[in-house]
Design a protein around this nucleic acid. Structure first.
Lengths: 145, 145
DNA sequence: GTGCCACTTCAAGTCGACTTGAGGTCAAGA
DNA sequence: TCTTGACCTCAAGTCGACTTGAAGTGGCAC
């Protein structure tokens, strides 16, 4: 494992230095020391950042991700939480699949407005059953680079 | 189609009146008039709200959803946009599926910390390939009701 | 030894999607 | 007629995840 300063981590991960500092403050990553003022990281931080990005893409908050990194406390609750999250993801995936199919159809069909296409609306209606009051978590919205 | 006042719409859709006003302001829904001060909606608004909720769950912003409701302008770009969105959803779905599988495994496996389970990490690594600098849109986070 | 400047800290700002609060209005019941 | 209270408007606040700006610091090239 090489040591990397914050600029190298930022460059190799695509995560801005400001975000790296923020993650450190939140306890999601840890620097292994300083070189003068500058944070120095173990290169293992890159994998951790990839995992964080993935978790965020899956809709977890930073606090939830921090919990997953935490070394085995609350054993039962933790596992239940994980299973519950998996179930939630399953429901999300089903909705997203329906939405994707609806979009594909809308892109190909010729109704004057997409919402006027009966096929599109039927698909959405199916997907939306019970979804009106739905709650979901956020995923990041960042430009690459 | 019955007419509903804002309180009835809120109650039947699960969307708070404040959010309904906000959506109207944004042009996502429209009231068909007033009864005194009170907004009156056509009951068709309920389907529209379901569609909006679904779009949000799929990661679209309110502005993007408004575009989808818009009556057929920019014909080609619009359809390209839809197809692009569908592709983006596909990528998202793949990531989410990997994440879900990873979580299911982690919930069942006995590594001291989930991030130390090799299976979990392999799954995540596969899913994360090229995902570090990824960008995604937000979905709502609301309690039902 | 002295400048440079990428880094540092800390506070404040931003963005989307709403919510909340203050102060106002009006249809309906007593 | 008067009161009630759910609705109204408009401005400001909230939340998560960062970003931005101002002011400071210190390793390294010269």
């Amino acid at each position: 494992m090489r040591n990397l300063d914050i600029a190298e981590v930022a460059q190799q991960s695509g995560v801005p230095a400001s975000a790296l500092r923020f993650y450190e403050e939140k306890g999601l990553i840890a620097s292994i020391g300083r070189r003068g003022l500058r944070r120095v990281f173990d290169s293992g931080v890159l994998e951790r950042l990839a995992l964080i990005a993935l978790g965020r893409a899956a809709g977890f908050s930073l606090d939830e991700i921090a919990l997953m990194f935490a070394p085995e406390r609350r054993p039962r609750i933790d596992r239940q939480m994980l299973a519950a999250k998996a179930d939630e993801l399953d429901r999300t995936i089903r909705k997203l699949s329906a939405m994707r199919d609806g979009l594909r159809h809308a892109a190909a069909c010729s109704a004057p407005s997409h919402m006027e296409c009966p096929t599109f609306r039927r698909m959405l209606r199916a997907a939306a059953s019970g979804a009106v009051g739905a709650r979901r978590k956020k995923a990041p919205s960042r430009q690459p680079g």
